[in-house]
Design a protein around this nucleic acid. Structure first.
Length: 227
DNA sequence: GGCCAGGACACCA
DNA sequence: TGGTGTCATGGC
Protein backbone atom coordinates (compact mmCIF):
# COMPACT_ATOMS: atom_id res chain seq x y z
CA UNK A 1 0.00 0.00 0.00
CA UNK A 2 1.26 3.47 -0.88
CA UNK A 3 0.78 6.22 1.69
CA UNK A 4 0.63 9.79 0.44
CA UNK A 5 0.94 12.53 3.02
CA UNK A 6 -1.93 14.99 3.46
CA UNK A 7 -0.12 18.03 2.13
CA UNK A 8 0.76 16.15 -1.03
CA UNK A 9 -2.88 15.27 -1.55
CA UNK A 10 -3.76 18.94 -1.08
CA UNK A 11 -1.01 19.97 -3.52
CA UNK A 12 -2.23 17.41 -6.02
CA UNK A 13 -5.67 18.96 -6.00
CA UNK A 14 -4.19 22.43 -6.42
CA UNK A 15 -1.96 21.33 -9.29
CA UNK A 16 -4.87 19.59 -11.01
CA UNK A 17 -7.06 22.66 -10.47
CA UNK A 18 -4.40 24.83 -12.11
CA UNK A 19 -4.19 22.38 -14.99
CA UNK A 20 -7.95 22.53 -15.35
CA UNK A 21 -7.85 26.32 -15.56
CA UNK A 22 -5.10 26.32 -18.17
CA UNK A 23 -6.84 23.65 -20.23
CA UNK A 24 -10.08 25.58 -20.08
CA UNK A 25 -8.27 28.67 -21.35
CA UNK A 26 -6.23 27.04 -24.13
CA UNK A 27 -7.98 23.78 -24.91
CA UNK A 28 -6.23 20.41 -25.19
CA UNK A 29 -2.91 20.95 -26.99
CA UNK A 30 -2.17 17.53 -28.44
CA UNK A 31 1.59 18.04 -28.26
CA UNK A 32 4.32 17.70 -29.51
CA UNK A 33 4.06 19.54 -32.84
CA UNK A 34 5.86 16.91 -34.93
CA UNK A 35 4.92 13.99 -37.17
CA UNK A 36 7.47 11.38 -36.11
CA UNK A 37 9.60 10.55 -33.04
CA UNK A 38 12.64 11.69 -35.02
CA UNK A 39 11.07 15.04 -35.87
CA UNK A 40 10.06 15.51 -32.24
CA UNK A 41 13.58 14.72 -31.02
CA UNK A 42 15.08 17.09 -33.58
CA UNK A 43 12.64 19.79 -32.49
CA UNK A 44 13.55 19.21 -28.85
CA UNK A 45 17.21 19.90 -29.63
CA UNK A 46 16.54 22.85 -31.94
CA UNK A 47 14.23 24.58 -29.45
CA UNK A 48 16.96 24.91 -26.82
CA UNK A 49 16.81 28.55 -25.72
CA UNK A 50 15.01 29.40 -28.95
CA UNK A 51 11.55 30.60 -29.91
CA UNK A 52 9.49 27.82 -31.48
CA UNK A 53 8.69 29.93 -34.56
CA UNK A 54 12.39 29.82 -35.45
CA UNK A 55 12.46 26.06 -34.89
CA UNK A 56 9.53 25.64 -37.27
CA UNK A 57 11.47 27.42 -39.98
CA UNK A 58 14.48 25.20 -39.46
CA UNK A 59 12.34 22.06 -39.58
CA UNK A 60 10.64 23.27 -42.76
CA UNK A 61 14.10 23.72 -44.30
CA UNK A 62 15.10 20.20 -43.24
CA UNK A 63 11.92 18.77 -44.77
CA UNK A 64 12.32 20.78 -47.98
CA UNK A 65 15.83 19.37 -48.32
CA UNK A 66 14.50 15.85 -47.56
CA UNK A 67 16.97 15.79 -44.68
CA UNK A 68 14.59 14.84 -41.88
CA UNK A 69 15.33 11.14 -41.77
CA UNK A 70 17.81 9.14 -39.77
CA UNK A 71 19.69 8.10 -42.91
CA UNK A 72 19.91 11.64 -44.28
CA UNK A 73 20.89 13.18 -40.96
CA UNK A 74 23.54 10.50 -40.63
CA UNK A 75 25.00 11.26 -44.05
CA UNK A 76 24.67 15.02 -44.29
CA UNK A 77 27.87 17.03 -43.71
CA UNK A 78 27.76 19.12 -40.49
CA UNK A 79 28.24 22.39 -42.38
CA UNK A 80 25.29 21.59 -44.68
CA UNK A 81 23.14 20.62 -41.69
CA UNK A 82 24.09 23.85 -39.92
CA UNK A 83 23.03 25.86 -42.98
CA UNK A 84 19.64 24.12 -43.04
CA UNK A 85 18.91 24.82 -39.37
CA UNK A 86 20.32 28.36 -39.41
CA UNK A 87 16.96 29.92 -38.52
CA UNK A 88 16.90 28.14 -35.16
CA UNK A 89 19.99 30.01 -33.96
CA UNK A 90 23.17 28.50 -32.48
CA UNK A 91 23.21 26.57 -35.71
CA UNK A 92 26.78 25.25 -35.58
CA UNK A 93 26.31 24.05 -32.00
CA UNK A 94 22.94 22.49 -32.75
CA UNK A 95 24.19 20.77 -35.90
CA UNK A 96 26.84 19.08 -33.77
CA UNK A 97 24.23 18.16 -31.17
CA UNK A 98 21.97 16.59 -33.79
CA UNK A 99 24.92 14.62 -35.12
CA UNK A 100 25.79 13.47 -31.59
CA UNK A 101 22.20 12.33 -31.05
CA UNK A 102 22.05 10.40 -34.33
CA UNK A 103 25.40 8.77 -33.56
CA UNK A 104 24.02 7.77 -30.15
CA UNK A 105 20.88 6.17 -31.63
CA UNK A 106 23.05 4.31 -34.14
CA UNK A 107 25.66 3.15 -31.65
CA UNK A 108 23.33 2.11 -28.80
CA UNK A 109 20.19 1.02 -30.64
CA UNK A 110 21.27 0.19 -34.17
CA UNK A 111 19.50 3.28 -35.52
CA UNK A 112 16.13 2.11 -34.22
CA UNK A 113 13.85 4.47 -32.30
CA UNK A 114 11.59 1.53 -31.48
CA UNK A 115 14.49 -0.26 -29.84
CA UNK A 116 15.52 2.90 -28.03
CA UNK A 117 12.07 3.52 -26.57
CA UNK A 118 11.63 -0.12 -25.54
CA UNK A 119 14.40 0.62 -23.05
CA UNK A 120 13.54 1.34 -19.40
CA UNK A 121 12.73 5.10 -19.21
CA UNK A 122 15.03 5.80 -16.27
CA UNK A 123 17.88 3.94 -17.92
CA UNK A 124 17.26 5.68 -21.25
CA UNK A 125 17.18 9.06 -19.52
CA UNK A 126 20.60 8.38 -18.07
CA UNK A 127 21.92 7.37 -21.47
CA UNK A 128 20.46 10.47 -23.13
CA UNK A 129 22.02 12.71 -20.49
CA UNK A 130 25.35 11.20 -21.49
CA UNK A 131 24.96 12.54 -25.01
CA UNK A 132 26.78 15.84 -25.48
CA UNK A 133 24.24 18.60 -25.98
CA UNK A 134 21.30 16.79 -24.35
CA UNK A 135 20.47 18.11 -20.90
CA UNK A 136 17.58 17.20 -18.58
CA UNK A 137 14.86 19.20 -20.34
CA UNK A 138 15.77 17.95 -23.81
CA UNK A 139 16.10 14.35 -22.57
CA UNK A 140 12.73 14.51 -20.83
CA UNK A 141 11.05 16.12 -23.85
CA UNK A 142 12.33 13.28 -26.03
CA UNK A 143 11.17 10.66 -23.50
CA UNK A 144 7.71 12.16 -23.05
CA UNK A 145 6.81 13.46 -26.48
CA UNK A 146 8.76 11.16 -28.80
CA UNK A 147 8.70 8.05 -26.62
CA UNK A 148 5.38 8.42 -24.83
CA UNK A 149 7.02 7.82 -21.44
CA UNK A 150 5.50 9.28 -18.24
CA UNK A 151 8.26 11.83 -17.62
CA UNK A 152 7.40 15.34 -16.45
CA UNK A 153 9.19 18.08 -18.41
CA UNK A 154 10.40 21.16 -16.55
CA UNK A 155 11.28 24.31 -18.44
CA UNK A 156 11.86 28.01 -17.82
CA UNK A 157 8.11 28.70 -17.89
CA UNK A 158 7.51 26.02 -15.26
CA UNK A 159 10.02 27.63 -12.92
CA UNK A 160 8.69 31.13 -13.58
CA UNK A 161 4.99 30.38 -13.29
CA UNK A 162 5.10 28.02 -10.32
CA UNK A 163 7.66 30.23 -8.62
CA UNK A 164 5.30 33.17 -8.90
CA UNK A 165 2.42 31.03 -7.68
CA UNK A 166 4.44 30.23 -4.57
CA UNK A 167 5.02 26.53 -5.19
CA UNK A 168 8.71 26.99 -5.94
CA UNK A 169 11.45 29.23 -4.65
CA UNK A 170 12.75 29.69 -8.16
CA UNK A 171 16.33 28.49 -7.75
CA UNK A 172 15.72 24.79 -7.20
CA UNK A 173 17.66 22.43 -9.46
CA UNK A 174 15.86 20.75 -12.35
CA UNK A 175 15.46 17.33 -10.75
CA UNK A 176 14.00 18.81 -7.58
CA UNK A 177 11.34 20.73 -9.51
CA UNK A 178 10.54 17.65 -11.53
CA UNK A 179 10.17 15.61 -8.33
CA UNK A 180 7.82 18.25 -6.94
CA UNK A 181 5.38 17.49 -9.75
CA UNK A 182 5.86 13.75 -10.07
CA UNK A 183 5.40 13.21 -6.31
CA UNK A 184 2.06 14.98 -6.43
CA UNK A 185 0.51 14.30 -9.81
CA UNK A 186 -0.70 10.85 -10.87
CA UNK A 187 1.75 9.02 -13.14
CA UNK A 188 0.01 9.66 -16.43
CA UNK A 189 1.75 10.24 -19.77
CA UNK A 190 -1.25 12.05 -21.26
CA UNK A 191 -1.48 14.35 -18.23
CA UNK A 192 2.26 15.11 -18.23
CA UNK A 193 2.11 15.73 -21.97
CA UNK A 194 -0.68 18.27 -21.83
CA UNK A 195 0.36 19.80 -18.50
CA UNK A 196 3.69 20.93 -19.89
CA UNK A 197 2.06 22.09 -23.12
CA UNK A 198 -0.42 24.17 -21.12
CA UNK A 199 2.41 25.72 -19.09
CA UNK A 200 4.21 26.75 -22.27
CA UNK A 201 1.01 28.13 -23.78
CA UNK A 202 0.35 30.14 -20.65
CA UNK A 203 3.93 31.27 -20.38
CA UNK A 204 4.28 32.62 -23.86
CA UNK A 205 0.77 33.86 -24.49
CA UNK A 206 -0.44 35.79 -21.48
CA UNK A 207 2.03 35.93 -18.64
CA UNK A 208 4.14 38.98 -19.33
CA UNK A 209 4.88 41.58 -16.67
CA UNK A 210 3.36 44.49 -18.56
CA UNK A 211 0.67 45.12 -19.47
CA UNK A 212 -1.14 43.26 -16.73
CA UNK A 213 -2.52 40.03 -18.08
CA UNK A 214 -6.26 40.10 -17.47
CA UNK A 215 -6.68 37.09 -19.71
CA UNK A 216 -4.42 34.94 -17.55
CA UNK A 217 -6.61 32.21 -16.01
CA UNK A 218 -4.35 32.06 -12.96
CA UNK A 219 -4.39 35.77 -12.29
CA UNK A 220 -5.79 36.87 -9.01
CA UNK A 221 -5.27 39.86 -6.76
CA UNK A 222 -1.56 40.61 -6.58
CA UNK A 223 -0.64 37.70 -8.82
CA UNK A 224 0.97 38.82 -12.01
CA UNK A 225 3.34 36.25 -13.36
CA UNK A 226 6.54 37.92 -14.41
CA UNK A 227 9.44 36.94 -16.54
C1' DG B 1 18.26 49.02 -31.38
C1' DG B 2 17.34 46.21 -27.44
C1' DC B 3 15.26 42.35 -25.38
C1' DC B 4 13.84 37.75 -25.32
C1' DA B 5 13.00 32.86 -26.60
C1' DG B 6 10.15 25.64 -24.81
C1' DG B 7 19.21 25.08 -22.87
C1' DA B 8 23.55 23.19 -22.52
C1' DC B 9 28.30 23.31 -21.88
C1' DA B 10 33.08 25.00 -20.99
C1' DC B 11 35.75 27.46 -18.07
C1' DC B 12 37.26 29.54 -13.87
C1' DA B 13 37.71 30.80 -9.01
C1' DT C 1 30.32 23.65 -6.56
C1' DG C 2 28.45 27.77 -8.22
C1' DG C 3 28.82 31.73 -11.22
C1' DT C 4 29.72 33.51 -15.82
C1' DG C 5 30.45 33.60 -20.78
C1' DT C 6 29.32 31.61 -25.20
C1' DC C 7 26.59 29.93 -28.82
C1' DA C 8 22.96 33.27 -32.75
C1' DT C 9 18.65 33.83 -35.24
C1' DG C 10 14.15 36.17 -35.80
C1' DG C 11 10.00 38.51 -33.83
C1' DC C 12 8.25 42.28 -31.32
Amino acid sequence: MIFVSGWKVRDRKRLLDIYGLMKKAHGHQGWWPGDTPLEIAVGAILTQNTAWTNVEKAIRCLKAAHALSLARLRAIPPARLAALIRASGYYTVKADRLKEFIAFVDARFGGSFDRMFSCDPAELRGLLLGVKGIGPETADSILLYAGGKPVFVVDAYTKRIFGRLGFLGGDEPYDEIQRFFTERLPVDTALYNDYHAQIVMLGKSVCRPKPRCDACPLRRRGCVIER
